[in-house]
């Protein structure tokens, strides 16, 4: 597992270095700009969380460009371990994105004050960022091993679009249950439902991907 995590890290690191540099620069810009443009903070938080996750799942495709995907199966690993490493790597990169988002927004608030109307808005932004990332991985991984690596670009696009669609769908559904305007407790409950759905889908996607991967031949 340690070797697999390193293998995944090397596959992701080149893209992650550039993305981190860009996001660090953007973060500095946000900290300087402060709360003048809240939309910038929203965009930054979502893109940094989803971006790191996207880079992580896109790196799965790099394995199949060499025979490494096949070679790995000859190493002392269970097929489930290989899949587990992809899921774990995505989670680690999501945590990285959350750290970037958290640090930047904390510094923004510390230096310039709270940029939003409601106290729950930051929580909801994290919920949406985490939700899109987890749904994206949950959709991409089984499709990738089912659909073959020659379709990976379209599968990446499909998984990101589907994850955004699912989050929007869940928000609409939750809004229809609670009368507008929602109070703080209802907002937190709504966010928790979205978070729970994404975690559940991500968790269920793992055994499904393992099942698909066990049938895969190289």
């Amino acid at each position: 597992m340690k070797g697999l995590m390193k293998s995944n890290l090397y596959a992701t690191s080149a893209n992650a270095k550039i993305f981190s540099a860009v996001m660090a620069l953007l973060g500095i810009f946000m900290i300087v700009m402060g709360s003048k443009i809240p939309a910038l903070i929203i965009g930054y938080m979502l893109s940094v969380m989803v971006g790191f996750s996207f880079i992580s799942i896109a790196s799965v495709c790099k394995d199949s460009t060499a025979k490494w995907a096949k070679h790995k199966l000859t190493a002392p690993l269970k097929r489930a371990d290989i899949i587990k490493s992809f899921f774990a790597s995505q989670l680690l990169w999501l945590v990285m994105g959350m750290t970037f988002a958290g640090t930047t927004v904390t510094l923004c608030i510390a230096l310039h004050g709270y940029p939003f109307d409601r106290t729950t808005d930051i929580f909801m932004l994290f919920v949406v960022g985490i939700g899109v990332s987890l749904f994206m991985g949950a959709i991409f991984f089984p499709l990738f091993f089912l659909g073959g690596d020659e379709r990976n670009e379209v599968l990446l696009i499909v998984s990101i679009l589907c994850s955004i669609g699912i989050i929007i769908g869940l928000i609409i559904l939750i809004n229809s249950f609670f009368p507008s305007p929602m109070n703080t407790l209802q907002l937190i409950l709504g966010g928790t439902i979205i978070l729970a759905c994404s975690i559940l889908t991500f968790t269920l996607s793992y055994p499904l991907t393992v099942k698909i991967f066990k049938r895969k031949e190289y």
Partner: peptide, 19 residues
């Protein structure tokens, strides 16, 4: 192409040591 082209020998050794 047994190993990804973006690896170095050192990285290969680290991965293998983990496997």
């Amino acid at each position: 192409d047994n190993f990804p082209g973006f690896w170095t020998v050192k990285q290969l050794s680290r991965v293998m040591a983990g496997l």
